[in-house]
Design a binder for these strands. Structure first.
Lengths: 234, 234
DNA sequence: CGACAATTTGATCTGTCTCAACTATGGTGG
DNA sequence: CCACCATAGTTGAGACAGATCAAATTGTCG
């Protein structure tokens, strides 16, 4: 978690030490389990230890829109510190381990350590910056561009955390999940990914994706990582 | 502005008094002017005094995605307090008056008044909740549902600020703007609004919109105002 | 090895886009 | 006060991206 926060904000060694004292209880989950449901009023924050989580909304009972993919190190529902009622759900998309941190403990921490408060606020804001990017993708890009963009984003975010050794990484969402994230049907996701492969941009085997031509993918998707607000991207 | 902040958070009288002392310089703008551009590094926050503003991104040079409509009382770019670089633009969609508040002044204020900090944070978070709702609209709803939902949302938000006397209100975005917000072409926005009128849900004359059947519109759009996190909505 | 989940394929249908022209509306200057 | 011009709204016809439905194939894990 500390490593993840340092991607977007500087932390003093006292801040880090304080973060390390946060009490948390970890829970194993199988794939497809709800962590928090829309309408809940949680009294703790979820922290992703391993596996893949997503935030989502259900519309018209049935259709699902995924709002974010959350990787290990993420704090997907920090906003529950300030907004009582969840306006979306949080669930696993793979076998996963979640940790829960009581709100009280976080309140005490951020009152005592402004640097921590700043880092957490920034984490939330980067999150909504990504949300804006997704909105632009859904509203104004073709299926091919949307999926290319999603791969660029996940590649960069995972790489920043050290989850991408070379050009190959584990991408856990199924084609249905990708469809629910990009506003497409799973059938069309399938056909679109085939085209990315045919164009020599991507190579997939099972859950493993290999970026064959990142520059090409970037150009196709009109991808600019500035919206991720990462410190090391100059 | 104080009235607007009180819609989402409680403020003590000291908080209000402190907010009233914020220094601001106001500027008149005509329609279609940029206030902040993507990539800028502003050192002050914009506050909407009158008129209509929107936040937007341009993709592939040309296509525009509007991320929010901002009404008088809004603070559309509070996040610039924490993220140096703007990941989107801010512009007027009508003749308008903007006020600018230096970041320094805001920093001093929120350090001294935790209640103000809380209210501003909540304002940001409600904003991203609306963003999530828009994402679900773009990803998983039909044109008719999207536009109905947009009208429901604007009606409720404007009513909370006292801008809706009866069922009639000024809705300033053009059909092109509505299209850029909902991910549709302006032609299709036109046809879709005609259908809303034919169904007896809406009546428009010029910029003035009258909600004829709010319950019907809500049902069609699957609208639930919970995501606006307003205090008075129980 | 068996069963269930995920991916792939084919065929058809439809919502929305695009292009292009036309009509209303409102503001401006002569 | 009216003629003019720019901006916004409206209409029609045709094209296409992506949805839907249904079935077959592949992969994965106990």
């Amino acid at each position: 978690m500390i490593r993840q926060l340092k991607i977007v904000a500087r932390l003093s060694s006292e801040d880090e030490a304080a973060l390390a004292t946060l009490p948390m209880t970890s829970v194993s989950k199988s794939s497809g389990e709800d962590i928090v449901r829309e309408g809940d009023q949680p009294d703790s924050c979820c922290f992703v230890l391993s596996g893949l989580f997503c935030r989502y909304k259900l519309v018209d009972s049935g259709r699902r829109q995924i709002m974010s993919f959350n990787f290990p190190g993420d704090l997907p529902d920090l906003q529950s510190l300030y907004l009582e009622r969840m306006d979306h759900g949080l669930m696993t998309l793979s076998p996963a381990v979640a940790a829960f941190i009581p709100h009280d403990a976080v309140y005490r921490l951020i009152d005592a350590y402004p640097g921590v408060r700043y880092a957490l606020t920034k984490h939330i804001l980067v999150d909504s910056s990504i949300l804006r990017q997704w909105l632009a993708n859904l509203g104004r890009r073709s299926a091919l561009e949307r999926i290319a963009h999603l791969f660029c984003e996940c590649y960069v975010r995972l790489k920043a955390r050290g989850f991408v050794p070379g050009q190959t990484f584990e991408f856990l969402p199924t084609q249905v999940d990708i469809g629910d994230a990009t506003g497409l049907s799973s059938v069309h996701v399938n056909r679109t990914m085939q085209e990315l492969r045919q164009r020599g941009l991507l190579k997939s085997s099972g859950r493993t994706q290999e970026i064959l031509d990142f520059e090409g993918l970037k150009a196709l998707a009109d991808f600019d990582p500035a919206y991720l607000h990462m410190l090391q991207t100059r």
